[in-house]
Design a protein around this nucleic acid. Structure first.
Length: 139
DNA sequence: GCCAACGTTGGC
DNA sequence: GCCAACGTTGGC
């Protein structure tokens, strides 16, 4: 079971927006980067990830679950672009900011720190557990 | 608003 | 196939 991190600008699709979509979730459209797409291709149904707000907030705000496997991105102009669907699981009891992540030694190797531009990232199990713990939710 | 980092494009 | 130029992202 792999873990992921989805990065979104909250004024495009915030975690709260995703919560309002309910169980059906939403298409994670707009990815135009091969590394990010390739990560989505590896996702299995039910795999979970963090939801991160870039620019505004710069924090992990909740967890999500993959609810539809990779399929063509309906907003794409070429078939190379694909996406998965995700739905909101739990909001963090306490959001974990990038600033805080940088102060935690065990989290300094996160892709979020190393390559902040990648919009769909893998997260290790250790990172998953630690951030859940810091955020006050069950892993 | 600036700029560094990175990915993509296109000329050669 | 290399690499310079360019565009985009995202932290600050």
């Amino acid at each position: 079971m792999a873990y992921w991190l989805f990065k979104s600008e909250p004024d495009v699709l915030s975690f709260d927006d995703l919560v309002t979509k309910g169980k059906a979730g939403d298409e994670w459209t707009g990815i135009r980067n091969y590394q990010a797409r390739n990560n989505m291709r590896k996702m299995a149904l039910g795999e979970r990830g963090f939801y991160y707000h870039s620019n505004i907030g710069k924090a992990v705000v909740g967890t999500v679950e993959v609810c539809k496997l990779i399929h063509p991105d309906s907003t794409a102009d070429i078939p190379a672009w694909e996406c998965v669907d995700i739905r909101a699981l739990k909001p963090m009891a306490r959001v974990i900011t990038l600033e805080e992540i940088k102060t935690v030694k065990a989290l300094n190797e996160m892709v979020l720190v190393k390559n902040s531009r990648l919009s769909v990232q893998p997260v290790t199990e250790a990172e998953w557990k630690l951030i859940c713990e810091l955020g006050g939710i069950a892993p």
